[in-house]
Amino acid sequence: MNLILDRLIPYSLKDRIASSSSAIWNQIVTFDESNKIKIEAPSGTGKTTLTHILYKVRADYTGSIKYDDLELGKCNEDALAELRQHHLSIVFQDLRLFPELTAFENIEIKRLLTPQFSTQELVFEMAEALGVASILDQKIRFCSFGEQQRIAIIRALMQPFNWLILDEPFSHLDQENIKLASKLIASACEKRNAGLVIMGLNKDHYFDYSKELVL
């Protein structure tokens, strides 16, 4: 599944884009399937805006986004749910977990949307690999942000996808944990033959990038 961005201009960044150059805003960009794309985005360039536009959390922009033939702006609520269940996964910068559910329940509520794709054992395996097995039964609001980040990553890996969007996914992890998490993510992408788009403030070498762009 290719991802095509066609002259995207979010309303909120209109003036800014007119006065500065960007590799993405107001450009025609194609991300080929299973590529790993790094988008380097200094503060204020619209990193989170782009994440939200790609996942259709917001639609206040001109231009268009296409996942193969599916134009995101025109897809209805059912098609969107289908896209989010089977083709598009995400780790938000602000994670978006349910604070009143336990870590385990937060992962389950996602896994059970496509239960045939990943088993409960996989949840424990991944939690073990990222060192969060012991907090699975804790309510999310009692977990540290670093723990929450890892839970959000595991949640994103429960479903099938063609593209994984990561918005500063490792901001609260130490080097050791970043290594573990990126390994887990890379193997999950490989297993699905999927691509990923990762947003970060600086250059990094978390993954073997096929394209590095500056927003």
């Binding site: 749910a81 989010r84 479903q159």
Partner: peptide
């Protein structure tokens, strides 16, 4: 908020 988040993680409003 819960309903919004549920839809965000891939539940259809119909469900």
């Amino acid at each position: 908020e819960e309903i919004e988040l549920l839809i965000l993680i891939g539940n259809s409003p119909k469900n």
